[in-house]
């Protein structure tokens, strides 16, 4: 195997329950300030993992809960429209959410959700596993990309950038290293949060095949 190969990995997630809940905007804000960053990641990415075959879907739990359980469409829409792609790390994303909620939590009437519909904070442990698939040519890369699980695509496109705080997704980094700068740049510019994972797989393959 040549040195410059792409090793496909996959990721599996174990969801943990923090036993912390919020029943209104003020509590949501206060609890968000205290929970670990892994919890912010969980609540801004869970929909992508569980409903990855649906499109479009709200990308974060905070937005869904505020809109549907507090019936606060204004704040819900603001939370839903946070452009996650603009953040390279979870600390900055958390600050953005805190800032946004602070603006409204101080102004709005602090309405409670119906009993039993509280927001429950979760976090996750990520397991990264090698799946014994390596590509040293673009043809091998395409062949493997067609067959790996959506968990693998998720890992290289989302986890690498946001949770592992790499500057770019893994696919673009490797494509650049083998001289496919144009294709790499196109994939870097994708907003992966607006695709289903299967859609993302197809879009990457089309880009590499020159059909973008």
């Amino acid at each position: 195997m040549p040195e410059n190969y792409f090793e496909f990995k996959s990721r599996l997630v174990l969801t943990e329950l923090l036993g912390i809940k919020a029943k209104n905007l003020v509590e949501l804000l206060e609890k968000i300030k205290t929970v670990p960053l892994s919890s912010i990641y969980q609540h801004t990415h869970r929909f992508l993992q569980q409903h990855h075959y649906l499109s479009p879907e709200p990308p974060n739990d905070f937005a869904y809960w505020v809109s549907n359980m507090l019936n606060n469409e204004i704040v819900g829409e603001q939370l839903a429209s946070i452009d996650v792609m603009q953040f390279n790390n979870l600390t900055d994303l958390k600050l953005k959410i805190v800032k946004l909620l602070s603006t409204y939590a101080n102004k709005a009437e602090n309405v409670n959700c119906p009993a039993g519909e509280e927001f429950h904070f979760m976090s996750s442990r990520i397991f990264v596993l090698p799946i014994n698939k390596k590509a040293s040519t673009i043809q091998e890369f395409k062949d493997i990309l067609k067959t790996v699980s959506i968990h693998s695509i998720y890992y290289h496109m989302f986890e690498a950038r946001m949770r592992l705080e790499k500057q770019d997704n893994d696919f673009s980094v490797w494509l650049r290293s083998i001289g496919m700068k144009q294709e790499a740049d196109i994939i870097s510019r994708f907003d992966p949060y607006t695709f289903t994972l299967e859609g993302l797989r197809q879009k990457i393959l089309e880009t590499i095949n020159g059909n973008s």
Partner: peptide, 29 residues
């Protein structure tokens, strides 16, 4: 099919068992 089949539960039990032997949030297997 995506979220509630026995293969997913089997996976989660194995992940939990493995998680006892590390403290990290991100675990390389």
């Amino acid at each position: 099919r995506q979220n509630f089949l026995i293969t997913r539960q089997l996976r989660d039990y194995l992940l939990l068992a493995l998680s006892f032997y590390t403290d990290s949030d991100i675990i390389d297997l």
